[in-house]
């Protein structure tokens, strides 16, 4: 039991050191702009089909599920406002982050893990390249930059999905629907989306990189790195969601 606690504390210290190293190295030259752009493409562009599908379905399903409750009070005209608040404040960043942690987090964990066990990271180090800067900093920056952009995209696709559902049942026009959507959303809601997405993006990147970078024990270690990258980032995303919601509520009050 004591050994287990000791192991957890050592792991926490290692994570802390890893995160601190990221902050130290991110501002120091040389800057790997080309690699950051390549990673943004990997994370962002290649996630688009999956994000589009999930965002659209989320919008449609959430609208269909919300309609009966509002219909009971004859308040279906509030649907656009309800949907926009729900999607922008909560669903868009959360759905994007969960999808990305599954797709991108596992990919980063497996990629760096396999580079670690095949000594590719050591090879970079001995050839005078800082592997932390090239592999970790670029990936963490890429997820931190692209997850907010993807979250806005998810929100857009989700709102369009919701519009199709609203339009079919309530015959609301495109202009009226989006007028109501934007009327209900405040700057604080947008700030909430950006804050959450930035934090979630950073979490996905840093957790995936940490797991992969410290992978060991051959192919088994690579599998474990990919698996833990997903499990740990999803767990942290939910914790962060609760904390950020409390902060935003306090700001709203």
């Amino acid at each position: 039991m004591i050994k287990k606690i000791q192991r957890i504390l050592i792991e926490l210290a290692n994570i802390h050191r890893f995160v601190m190293r990221f902050y130290r190295e991110v501002f120091m030259p040389p800057y790997e702009f080309k690699e950051i752009i390549r990673q943004c493409y990997e994370v962002g562009w290649k996630s688009l089909p999956l994000i589009s599908l999930t965002g659209f379905i989320t919008g449609v399903v959430f609208t269909n599920q919300s309609r009966p409750s509002l219909a009971e009070f004859g308040a279906t005209s509030w649907l656009p406002a309800l949907i926009s608040i729900a999607i922008i404040r909560a669903l868009a960043p959360l759905v994007t982050a969960l999808i990305a942690s599954g797709k991108v987090g596992s990919q980063i964990g497996a990629e760096l893990g396999s580079m670690r066990v095949t000594e590719q990271i050591d090879a970079m180090e001995v050839s005078g390249t800082n592997p932390f800067k090239f592999l970790v900093v670029s990936r963490v920056l890429a997820t931190t930059i692209t997850i907010p952009i993807l979250s806005f995209y998810t929100a857009g696709v989700g709102l369009i999905g919701a519009f199709l559902s609203v339009n079919q049942s309530e015959n609301t026009s495109f202009t009226v629907y989006f007028d109501q959507v934007f009327e209900a959303v405040t700057y604080l809601d947008i700030f909430s989306l950006v804050l959450k997405a930035v934090v979630f993006g950073f979490t996905i990147g840093i957790v995936g990189c940490y797991q992969g970078y410290h992978s060991s024990k051959g192919t088994e270690g690579v599998g474990r790195a990919a698996n833990w990258a997903v499990v740990m980032s999803m767990f942290l995303i939910f914790i962060e969601e609760i904390l950020i919601v409390q902060i935003i509520q306090a700001m709203r009050a």
């Binding site: 396999s114 580079m115 095949t118 000594e119 590719q120 050591d122 090879a123 970079m124 180090e125 001995v126 050839s127 005078g128 390249t129």
Partner: peptide
């Protein structure tokens, strides 16, 4: 800086899988 003067040939070659031979050599 010192490592630039030391060449390290790894047991499993440790070539970067995602890069071509040219890119592997250009990298350092």
């Amino acid at each position: 800086q010192l490592r630039l003067k030391i060449g390290f040939s790894f047991q499993n070659s440790a070539l970067y899988d995602s890069m071509t031979v040219r890119e592997n050599l250009e990298f350092p």
